[in-house]
Design a protein around this nucleic acid. Sequence first.
DNA 1: TAATATAGCTAACTCGTTTTAGCAAATCGT
DNA 2: ACGATTTGCTAAAACGAGTTAGCTATATTA
Lengths: 350, 350
Amino acid sequence: MNKRTTAKDVAEAAGVSRTTVSFVLNNVEGMRISEETRQKVLDTAEALNYHPDATARSMVKGKTFILGFVVRQEPDKAYADLLLPEVMRGISEVAGEHGYHLLFKPVPPEDEKNSLTTLFLERQVDGLIVSGPLSNDQEIVDLMTANAPIILQGRIDYPNIPSVDINNRKAAEKAVNHLIGLGHTRIAMITNASLQYSSSKDRLNGYRRALVNAGLPYDESLVFYGNRTPDSGFHAMKQILDLGIHPTAVFIASDTVALGSLNALYQNFIRVPEDIAVMGFDDIPLSKHLAPPLSTIHIPAHSLGWNAANLLIKWLDNNESPQEDCILDTEIIIRESCGSYKKREENTRI
Amino acid sequence: MNKRTTAKDVAEAAGVSRTTVSFVLNNVEGMRISEETRQKVLDTAEALNYHPDATARSMVKGKTFILGFVVRQEPDKAYADLLLPEVMRGISEVAGEHGYHLLFKPVPPEDEKNSLTTLFLERQVDGLIVSGPLSNDQEIVDLMTANAPIILQGRIDYPNIPSVDINNRKAAEKAVNHLIGLGHTRIAMITNASLQYSSSKDRLNGYRRALVNAGLPYDESLVFYGNRTPDSGFHAMKQILDLGIHPTAVFIASDTVALGSLNALYQNFIRVPEDIAVMGFDDIPLSKHLAPPLSTIHIPAHSLGWNAANLLIKWLDNNESPQEDCILDTEIIIRESCGSYKKREENTRI
DNA sequence: TAATATAGCTAACTCGTTTTAGCAAATCGT
DNA sequence: ACGATTTGCTAAAACGAGTTAGCTATATTA
């Protein structure tokens, strides 16, 4: 690489001081620069292809202009999250528009050497967006207490942590209500992940609530546990098939998990939706192309990232921490895996 | 946030100079520090929870210790790449071990404001890993000519650009050979993306070569084009079904695209593999859970990222640019979407 | 004992910016 | 015409580390 062009080079070439160069290029208000020198500086900067050194700028500004995006899940499973790229796209977009960059770092909770705190202490980032925290993540609580700019993408069991999320409980309720509306009364559930994660807990609660509100019994023996992977869905579905009386519908709180479940059904020659209705959650990019196309809850992943980044940047730029959480709407997507009410009647008639 | 602890604070607390603190904490060789002061510095640094400021360190070292990961695809389609998270995990792992961080940035080729070059000029990164370049990407050639440390994840039409990739041609050949081995003679192909991308071109070449080597005709009217999305696979497969004589097998150079194709087959009541054999490419995490489980070519995504990061860091640390490309092995994964040779005979007998 | 070497430390410079304080010349007001 | 203001610019300090050159006291050598 050739040597870099510095402000000093521009100053010398333009016959002015470094200070003037800085004033001109940053459009500093209140600093009177004649139109003549102003143009001269602009021209020579252009001619020398000058770009200010980000590191030096960070140094004096006391800001890195870098947002950290931390994925806080088991390393092997974090990547089962197929919405992650969309979230990152949302963040990148906003970051780019505001002159920020995005640092990506997986930091599992048990990791001793790498911690969220270190990212701040070493001043690698100005703020953090934390994806998928455990609901009892103590480090996050500590950092928040120390006023570190953090936006959660998810929720933890501690009040007043700014977060961008969907209403998992309500969305799950919507999903299960759809199944109930189709006439199902014996509905099993497979969770998306361990109940250590608030999203899992909330979706389970939504399931329960929908049942209870409809006057149906909540039966714990119909709840099975996934761990974000198709394999876990496969095994959970096998357990369901081992049940004495089959449920007529299953609510699976993750499309990725559902994929494994559908596979288990396929292998056992059980038709969807004719023999069993399946409702998913997440609306990963592939859901609509599955056989049968999966009915599910759409998560606005891009928007989740977009909002998180916007809140964080507002916090950093204006020093105002968000006063309330940002809860985005979900949409229920009806495809074919639940069957329609009409179809169901036809089937039962047969 | 409380004020940061600086080396100066540690120095004052330990009653030594800042220089000494630096010497001790960096284990500078040849600098004689008594065991006594050494411990004192270590202890107070620990007590004050001192972590050196990354920005200041970058400033004086002339290095950012940041690797850029640039995704060079159309923004809306980049995220159809479900292997991306795995690649990033591979990169992060290596980066972390060597004291580097990972900057993630989508930079589509047409983007005027954001360019790869700017990342270097502004010194945001020390080096770049570029994913999915177009085969005629001029900016990459220019940067390489200027000696910028860049590792391609993919290939472009220009010699001597260090790259980490799989042998797409050979892998495609392997895939098509499998279909030929099963007795298929009329095999269609759907590409993974536009032929602007070298991977698409290479996979098409592999398909052609396998046919020709087996003495089968290469028929251009059997080649259809995908664009990384399931939708494109859906449409391409519909075109195939409109053909007068159906092919008995289709090689689809992307599992994601194949997903849409499978959906089209499903909607037309065409059974896989009984009526048509389908071979994919990529082995995305979901392929083995599709109905039927998709036979495909496994890409070692994590390893791709791992190797790219290792090469880049070696380049940066030892100033030795890689002398040859890193081509990783692929593996053909036989599942159910092609049927077995035996099954096929049974079918034809019926 | 004087000259030299070594152990153990530190002052001061460097990196490339932004920003504060201030200086000289031109313009203004009366 | 003389002080006050404004215009147009710059010197120098700051950010927080790493690093070079050098200083002082003690130990070693001749």
